[in-house]
Design a protein around this nucleic acid. Structure first.
Lengths: 332, 332
DNA sequence: GTGAAAGCGCTAACAG
DNA sequence: CTGTTAGCGCTTTCAC
């Protein structure tokens, strides 16, 4: 920095001001400073800068599972909105393991990030509340109560209700739910399912699962061992739905003729050729964008009341669900 | 830190030593220090630590495209190997834009990371060489010459050759290649294709594309506008192959009866139900693991000669390719 | 706009 | 093991 100052013919302090975009630097000198930086290949040391200024221009983003396109899509929204609030992003992933997530958060905390966006975390709520005592936290895809935690999620209950209504309207009665296990939002989807089924006078029927393709395939395997198959399956997310879809088709079950399958998230998976999964859209990218806005607002005012943004989900029909064939009714 | 020292009843210096795992600290005191940290909720300041030690315990990982499962799979390997070399990871993505990648690298450089792993970067080679002058760089999925750059990639030429051989053995002659555009490895795959075709006495036929689903669909659309369709299509990667697959099927082309489609990467996309894409495996996770090992070695010895690790790819047959139907030969 | 000075929270090197 | 000292590279403040 000393060298830059000398080369630009200004004081060291001025270099600092220029680099930080202070308005009290003349255009002439600002330009000279920039030129000198470029010529010398100078890069400010982020650590020193942060140590001195006690701010860290970046916020941490924790994605639950890189394999699930849902997170890539959320991140797109985050990345698109970040520049508007001049935030830089520190991306991490917990690999679907709570311990991995905790490590990632600790890492961010040690780096003194200005805020954290947690996308569908699997961490216990207590850990999230603990983090929120240290730094502003926005949670996407899950509701965590805490007086400095902002949440943004879709209205799971409404989405699931719409989905179940649709299946029922198609004549389905034996609708099984593949549970999302420890996945964020899994509980809400499951409860929404129970509610919707009961509202239609139907009996809920749940098999354990997770937010992964493999878990979906296993759940399907379990259903295949039953004497009679349901006529429709609602998997907790698209990954699980795709896993189940594959397992069923490999077993000779025709979708949607013999069995309807519906997922949740409307990731690009569901839009894929030959899959065309019926699913529920939750404006993934929009949630990502919104999370940045919420975080910026909270950083601006730490003591604002906690926000809960509820995005309205929308059922998206696909190839994998359809009218229940009357076949089972007539004895073969 | 002062507080921790007081609470643990030791000197400030001892706290530093204990936290950094120095062997010259008795177990008793080490434990007391850890306890004190926990009780006080103390977290070392990464910036201060780095500034003082002139090291930054973490290395940067740049993934080209979060939407492509190839990168999630590579990252799995990286993340699996990182603890063995006690590296922490700083994840970033350039969103498939060279400018985004450059920003990400600058960001890492400002943070003075100990090394950088570039996975299928789209950056001009000169930018990568420039970075390698500042910090150790390992490139995955592309070969960049530079005397401090280690590369690790699969033997594209061999993989493509195997793929083309397979198609030819199935009776295909009109095999079109959907180019990978600016994607890393695209050039090598294209050249491998040209070579293999000529070796079989066939005429290469290339349409422009990219490493995305959309590009694959567009390329398919272009082919559909031709008077006659080829009998086989080799897309530069799985994403493009899947995009093309969808576009062809929507247009009524039956795969593999009317047209064979083959991708490259063997991502989980290709293993999906109803897709079951023929593709080429390149031990993605293994490459990720290897990249960490190479980086560790280079950090250990900056002046070692550059390494080029060539992973052996393997053709993986799927549903989407098969014997060429003799139909086109007999006039209808 | 300048120049000097203080200090961010830590590590590292030293004599004791 | 302790206690001290000297920075790491920057921001910030202050009088000028």
């Amino acid at each position: 920095m000393e060298d830059v100052a000398r080369r630009a013919g200004v004081s060291r302090a001025l270099v600092s001001l220029a680099l930080n975009g202070s308005p009290k630097v003349s255009d002439l000198r600002r330009q000279r400073v920039f030129d000198a930086c470029a010529e010398l290949g100078y890069r400010p040391n982020a650590a020193a800068r942060q140590l001195a200024s006690r701010r860290n221009g970046s916020v941490g983003v924790l994605l639950n599972d890189l394999h699930n396109p849902f997170f890539a899509e959320t991140y797109d929204g985050v990345a698109a909105a970040a520049p508007d609030h001049d935030m830089r992003l520190l991306l991490t992933t917990g690999g679907r393991r709570p311990s991995g997530e905790q490590e990632a958060i600790d890492h961010m905390l040690e780096h003194r990030v200005d805020g954290i966006i947690l996308v569908s975390p699997r961490l216990p709520a207590s850990a999230i509340v603990a983090a929120s005592a240290i730094v502003p936290v926005v949670v996407v895809g899950r509701v965590v109560k805490g007086d400095r935690i902002d949440c943004i999620t879709n209205d799971e209950r409404r989405g699931v209700r719409e989905l179940v209504d649709h299946l029922v309207a198609c004549g389905h009665e034996r609708i099984v739910h593949i549970h999302g296990g420890p996945g964020a939002g899994a509980r809400a989807r499951w409860r929404g399912y129970e509610h919707a089924m009961k509202a239609h006078g139907l009996t809920p029927d749940v098999v354990p699962g997770d937010f992964t393709e493999q878990a979906g395939a296993q759940a399907a395997a379990e259903l295949l061992r039953r004497r009679t198959l349901p006529t429709a399956v609602f998997a907790a997310n698209d990954m699980a739905a795709v896993g189940a879809l594959g397992a069923f088709e490999r077993a000779g079950v025709r979708v949607p003729d013999d069995l309807s399958i519906v997922g949740y998230d409307n990731t690009f998976l569901s839009r894929m050729p030959d899959i065309s999964l019926s699913t529920v859209d939750q404006s993934t990218e929009e949630m990502g964008r919104l999370s940045v806005a919420l975080l910026a607002k909270r950083i601006d005012n730490l003591d604002a009341p906690p926000t809960l943004e509820l995005v309205v989900p929308r059922y998206v029909p696909g190839r994998t669900s359809g009218a229940r064939t009357p076949r089972p009714r007539r004895p073969r």
